[in-house]
Computed example of a mutant assay.
Amino acid sequence: MPADPVFPAAHAPAVYLRALEPEDLDFLFALENDADIWGVSDTLAPVSRHALREYLAHASADFYLVRQLRLVVTTEIGRTPVGVVDLFDYDPLHQRAGIGITVLATERRHGYARQALALMKEHARRVLRLHQLYATVGADNTPSMKLFHATGFRQVGTRQQWLRTPGGWLDAVEWQCLL
């Protein structure tokens, strides 16, 4: 049985964040092996089911110890996942972390990412007591740029030729949100 959600969205109760469950194996397998998103996740090769089983076995580790947190985005309590939102690279001294979100290709353009980011921002502020979040977005990823802007992030800079892609080098746009 899936875990209870972390919390529902106040303005859109159809979106929830919850912990990873062993039952999420097939979902994670599909998400992690979607070559179309490897460029934004620094992935170069497929991920095995065995590796994902091992990951799921340890996914509930303490955020402050492993310095990362992945929550599943669902549209109803305990229902089929539509995406994940991650906090990573947690820095305890400066109380900040990177944030990223991935939504299944078939579930994009429904507002799930926007609502999930708003929920994770609130969780980072109230529960984890972070001071700020940051995101790095490929300069060609217009939907993600609009998403971070719409959820209160400010564009703070551009790293030139920061991301290597099959087509060459791509600039990375840096976003920051003070909580």
Rank of each mutant, 00 (worst) to 15 (best):
I37T: 13
W38F: 06
W38E: 07
S41K: 12
S41V: 14
D42R: 12
T43M: 11
L44E: 15
P46V: 00
V47P: 04
R49S: 08
A51T: 06
E54Y: 11
H58M: 01
A61R: 07
D62H: 02
D62N: 07
Y64W: 15
Y64I: 15
Q68G: 10
L69P: 00
L69W: 03
L71E: 09
L71R: 10
L71H: 09
T74S: 10
T74V: 03
E76T: 11
I77K: 15
G78M: 07
R79M: 14
T80F: 10
T80W: 08
D86T: 04
D89V: 09
D91A: 15
D91I: 10
Q95R: 15
A97K: 05
G98I: 03
I99E: 11
I99C: 13
G100F: 02
G100N: 02
G100R: 06
I101E: 02
T106I: 11
E107K: 09
R108Y: 06
G111V: 02
G111M: 05
A113M: 03
R114W: 02
R114E: 06
Q115I: 05
L119H: 02
K121Y: 00
K121M: 12
K121P: 07
E122S: 14
E122Y: 09
H123G: 03
L128S: 07
R129Q: 14
H131R: 11
H131D: 04
H131C: 02
L133D: 08
Y134A: 12
A135R: 00
A139W: 01
D140C: 14
N141T: 06
P143W: 00
P143D: 08
S144Y: 08
M145V: 09
L147K: 05
G152L: 06
G152E: 03
F153P: 02
V156I: 14
W162P: 00
R164H: 10
R164L: 07
G167N: 11
G168T: 09
W169C: 09
A172K: 04
V173H: 00
V173S: 02
V173I: 13
E174L: 15
W175E: 02
